[in-house]
Amino acid sequence: MKTVKAELIKETVKKMCIEANCNLPEDIYRCIRHGLSIEESSEGKKILSDLIENANYAKEQNMPICQDTGMAVFFVSVGQEVYIDGNLTEAINGGVRDGYEEGYLRKSVVIDPLRRVNTKDNTPAVIHYDIVPGDKIEITFAPKGFGSENMGGLKMLKPSDGEKGVMDFVVKTVEEAGPNPCPPIVVGVGIGGTMEKAALLAKKALTREADSKSEDEYYAAMEEELLHRINSLGIGPQGLGGRVTALGVNIETFPSHIAGLAVCVNIGCHVTRHLTKTL
């Protein structure tokens, strides 16, 4: 049994909040640079090069890349052989509280969805726990802005809708989102499971590198086909017209029920932040 102190988790989360919001992940940098090489619109090219300049400046100044520093979303895998000395959820929320304060990050959370009073410390975080074999804790932090979060969608398709139904729904969701989610976007797709499982998979898909491929060749081909269809929509950087609407499409799947075909699309903006640390 390995012991991990809650205080260490809190300190780690605090640093992750600041680092993730001020440093554009390398995969997104790569994808934007690649986008710049294929974009046909001159306005689109200018926007893409501005994004790189913005990320460089944010890093140099240690300031947030985007003012929407998001709702704090975590995926936490806890090894069965780890003993946590203290309260894990409180430690994560404590790290968010400290990180958002010390890093001059925006506090964007309201305590109630309808009565809307700001909690002023960006807590509570949305935390997804998983129990896994081993003696490590893996924490993935993926702060999510709501310009993009608001444009996702979920549909309970019929099994007979099949591959075409899934792809049409993904493309339709991106098309309707247009300029709103800050393209070029990353498209997270969850297929299968139950309704809430599909939604969770779609979010988790956004924590994969944007230019990664599914390990399943069938879905890797579908990712490629979807990227091609999405980048033929003409939406382009910021929706002002162009070739580079999406930087990548990531599909995650789970077994389903004989009667069901759930599909969920979670759209990430061009500042799709994700950072993983292991304790």
Binding site: D50, L51, A58, I65, C66, S108, N118, C182, C269, H270
Partner: peptide, 25 residues
Amino acid sequence: TGGLGALISRSVVKKELVAFPELGT
């Protein structure tokens, strides 16, 4: 340009509160 927050901040030379300070950001 959405997501250009760091660069855009350089265009602001002065900031002055006008109303609703209770709304924070």
